[in-house]
Structure formats: structure tokens, C-alpha cells
Design a protein around this nucleic acid. Structure first.
Lengths: 226, 226
DNA sequence: TAAATACTGTGATATATATCACGTTGTCTT
DNA sequence: AAGACAACGTGATATATATCACAGTATTTA
């Protein structure tokens, strides 16, 4: 649906807050808002990257085909840009984005986005900040996940879900066991066993997809100790 | 040494090529060129990030303290910016940079660098491109290293050194065995054994630090198969 | 409603690789 | 030159976790 009114949009990105009225009008003519059901693909590895995607609501996994299985690189919670690096840095998407909950995203023409970067320095600077901050958290997670073993890796993800994504010790697991395994580079069976282990030790409580972190301190300890 | 003549500098970054004569003059007044010996720290995790570092010659490792050992995140060959994300994205460095060979780097005031981003859109766009491309290669390496096992991981690094860094099948290993282990998240002993293994199977030839890839096809195979 | 298909839990076993231990070599220091 | 210190090679052993196998439980499809 063209000619969105981006001027009064309540979910502007930090970068978009720097745009002028005129620029926002331009944005409106080339911005399409799309809804995605849980499980739906938002963009796919190997496809041409023609649009910047800005997630306005929902939770998304960024993932990539690895040599043996799918690899989940990160989770992104709205509001946030999805995959700026692959959209700007390459003609073809290097990874995919899939909705983990019902989500809404705005698709913005890459050309217009590029114009904004060139015309509006405040906009450009916010994009740079965003890229930098994301890379820092990625490095941190990469280092942690690559050196800890299973209990520590799983603890790390659960804490991340609790603190960063849901901001609660009680939430519905947005990832299947298999996906958790893809995230922390383990096997489905091992993750399943470790979750049982955490349940037995009364660190977490699991009923269906509903998860509650009962003993945060201990989980933190396990996360630290690896 | 202040008042460098950046105008006629032969090692401008892609971004700096967009700067005006005036901006280059400004750059000159706040740009210091420093030499580093092999093994020297260029900037350190935990320290205040006040300067953008642009590597004009040499090879550098970007590394970070992990829960059990040091983790090498990437190698960076000149010419390239070193650690833009940590300099721009945080007040404090999240990781360190250490010279793997004798190197030269220019230190540029963060304030002036930020001014360039805001004043000069061509400059800003090149920085964005750089950030995006780096993240893409990092994701790729991350996925590969996290799913392959030792032989595949080691093969991947050797091929990377050969193709990306030295552009030759024969080169002097810039990393110690311990550092190779820190890079691919294995133990020193395992890496040592695997190198012996590769030597026995006539895939590589090692004399001291001098390494030659003899059977590239087989090494590629091992890299692919994991 | 039945059938098919994904997703999950758990035991038994296999295996890659970490760890430990020790000797060797090389490099730096004074 | 001698001592100290770091980097390295390699065997024996321990161990975390992948893999295999199978059964149970949801969820979707016809």
C-alpha cells in the first residue's frame, strides 16, 4: 500500500527521527507495511536484496545455512532494522529472516534509503551507530558461545531471552528445541536433555512452551562458569 | 607528529578519498602515524576509545577475553580501519588489537572523524559499506567455524590465510599454534596434532613457521566437508 | 476420524577432542 | 653462557556431547 503517512508514524527508527518533513513524505511513497504470521519467511538467503526492512512489531530470527544445519545468528526484537548489512553490503541476501511471532515490517526502497544516507547526515550517523552496536553484541555472543559448553551456552540464551527480549523471568519459548540447538550449535537431543536437567535442578520450570526461570542466580552462575 | 600531510597521502581509505582538500587539511592536524612492532598492542579492551585507528601497513589480530581463554575474532590486513564498531559504538573498547607483523597505523581523533561523517555524505556512505561488508564476512566465518569440527575449522583458517591474507600458497604463519587454537576455539594440543596430520597426509608442508599448502584441492575438500 | 508429519524425551553407545603429563626445542634476559 | 621462560610435539586417558534408536506426543492434512 503506497503513500503511507510516515510523517505521523509512531514507530519511527532513531535514524528516521532525523528526516525532514519532505523526506518523510518521500519515504511514505515508497514504504510498504507488511504483516507476517509466526513462522513466515521475511526475506531469504540467496534472493536479491532490494528493500531495507524495518521491523515495527514482533520477534524475528536471523539465520543462515551452515555446512551441516541451519545456524541462527541472532534474534531481533522490534523496533529494529532487519539485516542492514546484507541489504547494503551485498546485492544478494547472505542470510534469511523468519518471524518467530506475528510481526509487522516496513519495506523501504534501497535507493531511497541510500538517498537519505547521502542527504541527511544525522540519519547516516544513526545508521552507523546501529551497525556498530549490533556488531559489538554479536562479537560478545560469539566469543561466549564458542568457548562455553552446553550448560553455559543454553543458560546464556535463556538469560538473553529473559532479560533482553521479554524482560521477564516468565515467557513463552519463541524457539523450538531444534531451533535452540541451531542457535547454540548443539544437537536437539542434547538441548532437550539439558533442559530436563535444568528442570530437575529446579532452575527453570517448563510446562509446554511456557518457561519460567526460577533460580536466576544459579542460572547466571552456570552461564558465567561455562 | 601533528600536521601530517594527508592531502598527498598515498594510503587513503575509500572513505577518505571523498574528503575535500579542506577536510584533508583538518585531518592532517589531528592524525598521528605510529609504528608497531610484531606482538605490540595497538589498542586494548577496557581502555577508553578516543581515536579511530586506520592500519596503513601490516597485519593485526582483533581479539577479546573470553570466559576460558583469549578469543581471536578476526584478522585485519592493511589497508583497513581497526575496530570501528568498538570505537564508535561504545566509549570503552570491547576488544583489543595486536600487531602480528610490524605495522603502521594512523590515529585519528574521534571527534573529527564524526564531523566528517556528518559533513561529508560520501565519506559516511563508505564507512557504512565497510561496516556492512565486515559483518557479512564475520557471520559467514562464525557459521562455518561453529558447525565444523577441528580438521574443517583448521583447513578454513589455512585457506583464509592463503587466499585472503597472503594471496599465495606459501607463507609464514603469522599466528602461533596457541593463537590458531584461540581462533578456531580448540586446544593448542589438538591444533598441533592436526597440523602434524595434515603434514603426514602431504596436504601441507611445514618447516618452522614457513607453511606451504601442497594439496589445495584436498584441503578445500576437508574445509567443505567439515 | 484417520493418517501423516513434525516435534520431543530418553536410554545406550560411539567418538571427537579436551586434558594431563612430560620431554623437547627455541628465545629472551642478565 | 647459563638460567628462565615460552612455545611446541606427542602419548595416554577422561569426558562432553553427538549419534543412533525408538517410543510418545502434538499438530496439521485429507
Amino acid at each position: 500500500m503506497p503513500n503511507q503517512n510516515c510523517i505521523h508514524c509512531g514507530s519511527k527508527s532513531d535514524a528516521e527521527k532525523h528526516l525532514t518533513q519532505g523526506e518523510l513524505t518521500t519515504l511514505g511513497t515508497s514504504c510498504a507495511r507488511v504483516n507476517f504470521k509466526k513462522g513466515q519467511l521475511i526475506f531469504q538467503e540467496g534472493n536479491l536484496a532490494t528493500n531495507i526492512v524495518y521491523l515495527t512489531s514482533g520477534l524475528v530470527k536471523i539465520h543462515m545455512k551452515g555446512p551441516v544445519s541451519d545456524k541462527i545468528l541472532r534474534l531481533t526484537k522490534a523496533p529494529a532494522y532487519l539485516g542492514l548489512p546484507t541489504t547494503i553490503g551485498d546485492k544478494v541476501n547472505q542470510y534469511s529472516a523468519t518471524a518467530l511471532s506475528n510481526s509487522t515490517a516496513c519495506f523501504i526502497s534501497l535507493d531511497i534509503f541510500r538517498d537519505f544516507i547521502v542527504q541527511n547526515s544525522g540519519f547516516a550517523y544513526e545508521i552507523i551507530l546501529d551497525l556498530c552496536r549490533n556488531e559489538l553484541t554479536d562479537y560478545q555472543r560469539y566469543t561466549n558461545l564458542s568457548q562455553k559448553q552446553l550448560p553455559g551456552r543454553l543458560a546464556e540464551i535463556l538469560i538473553c531471552l529473559s532479560e533482553k527480549i521479554f524482560e521477564s523471568t516468565r515467557f513463552e519459548l519463541p524457539l523450538s528445541i531444534t531451533e535452540l540447538a541451531d542457535f547454540i550449535s548443539s544437537s536437539r537431543e542434547s538441548v532437550s536433555r539439558q533442559l530436563s536437567e535444568f528442570t530437575k535442578s529446579k532452575i527453570i520450570k517448563l510446562s509446554g512452551r511456557e518457561l519460567e526461570i526460577v533460580n536466576t542466580e544459579l542460572l547466571q552462575m552456570i552461564c558465567m562458569k561455562g
